[in-house]
Amino acid sequence: MANQGDTGLIIDPFYATYPTTLRSAGLKPKMVRTVPEDNFIPSVSELTKNAKNAKTLLINSPNNPTGTVYDKSNLFEISKVAIENDLWVISDEVYDTQIWVGKHISIRSVANMENRTAVIGSMSKSHAMTGSRLGWVVAPEQVIEKLSDLACNTNYGVPGFIQDAGLYALTQMPNIEKTVAEPFFRRREIAQKIIKECPYIRMHPSLGGMYLMLDIRATGLNGIEFSKALLEATNIAVMPGESFGESSAGHIRVAMTISDDKFEYATRSICSFASNFTTSTN
Score class of each variant (00 low, 15 high):
P13F: 02
A111I: 06
V44I: 12
A25N: 12
I78E: 01
N85A: 06
I107M: 08
A16M: 13
E145T: 13
N63W: 04
S24M: 11
L147E: 02
R33K: 09
S61A: 07
V110D: 02
S24V: 06
S148H: 11
V143A: 10
P140I: 07
I107E: 04
A16K: 07
P159N: 05
F76S: 10
N53V: 01
G26T: 08
T21M: 14
V89M: 08
G157I: 03
I41K: 14
Y18C: 10
Y156N: 13
V137T: 10
K49V: 02
S24D: 15
G102W: 02
V94N: 10
M113K: 01
T97A: 15
T130Y: 13
P62C: 07
L150N: 05
K80E: 09
P36H: 01
Y15L: 13
R108I: 10
I144S: 07
E114K: 14
T56G: 10
V35Q: 03
H104L: 00
N53Y: 08
Q142N: 15
N50S: 13
N112R: 11
S106H: 10
V94G: 06
Y70F: 14
G26N: 09
N60I: 05
I120E: 03
W100R: 02
N64Q: 12
N50D: 09
A16P: 00
E114A: 15
S124V: 00
T21W: 12
S109D: 15
T66K: 03
V137L: 11
E84L: 14
D38E: 08
E145S: 13
S79A: 15
H104N: 06
K30P: 02
A128P: 01
I83G: 00
I83C: 03
A128V: 08
N39C: 02
A54L: 03
N63I: 01
W136S: 15
L27V: 09
V119D: 04
E114M: 10
V101Y: 12
V89K: 01
N64L: 14
A139K: 09
S73I: 11
A25I: 01
D92G: 01
L75K: 02
W88V: 10
T66H: 00
N74Y: 00
K28H: 11
G67W: 00
R33W: 03
S91D: 15
V81A: 03
I90L: 13
L58M: 13
R23I: 15
D12P: 04
N64C: 12
I120G: 08
I90N: 02
Y18Q: 09
M31H: 03
K146D: 09
G102P: 04
K72A: 14
L22I: 07
I144Y: 01
K146V: 12
S79H: 01
K103Y: 05
A25V: 04
S91V: 04
Y156K: 15
Y18W: 12
N50K: 08
L57P: 10
L134P: 01
